[in-house]
Amino acid sequence: MSEQTKPATGLETVRLTKSFGGVRAVDEATIAFRDGQINALIGPNGSGKTTFFNCVTGMIKPESGSVLFRGKEITGHPPHRIARGGIGRSFQLCRIFPRMTLLENLLVAVRPTGLRQLLAPSREAGAIERARGLLVRVGLDHLENAEAGAISYGQQKLLELAGVLMSDPDTIMLDEPAGGVNPSLIGRIGSLVRELNAEGKTFLIVEHNMEMVMSLSDHVVVFDRGRPIAEGAPSVVQEDPRVLEAYLGV
């Protein structure tokens, strides 16, 4: 993506804070992610990455600080509003609708406006066509009528990604897309992310798989104890002594 045509920052947090009991899961985190890039958020277990995601997407209300998307404050907005604003997300422990078919899973992400559309059939030709296209894209089209709870975990992760894409976000937040997935599927997820990025989607990916992070991302933010401690290009971050310390606990 060319740097000039896009606004510099998409998603931004300013002194974002959330604690659980005595633990400051996110601690005055100030980060800016650029639009059009593949951003990675890495950090040791329990460093607050998922909590950060939850605060940004409205699933958890932060105590203080703010979240901005393209310069507009979205702090404390309900999740569906943030989603409709163009930020899609996946969950660390993959979440799909297990008793629905794959196709029905995707149709949930269609957003009707007004009473007429609300009561229009969910299985509408245009939506089905789009959903099928996405299933082809993630390689699950042969399972379109299978129940989502019956497919493998890796396939469920792909389904979740397809669901997020169905809602047509321009920023996509993935919480450990490679977690618990077999290596060949990790490859598929990686190339899909690259393709989508080439089509203009911004990514923010939390991931422990360093190989994936280093090969995929344009920009890496390192999180420790609820705040960023380093950021930069993958190669730079890899060498940073603070990162080594946080990871190796030296």
Partner: peptide, 20 residues
């Protein structure tokens, strides 16, 4: 579509919300 949303709530309310 309204019904699809309701059934999504039955299965996983937070997920439905996250999808908009």
């Amino acid at each position: 579509r309204f019904g699809a949303g309701l059934k999504a709530i039955r299965e996983d309310e937070d997920k439905a919300e996250a999808l908009g």
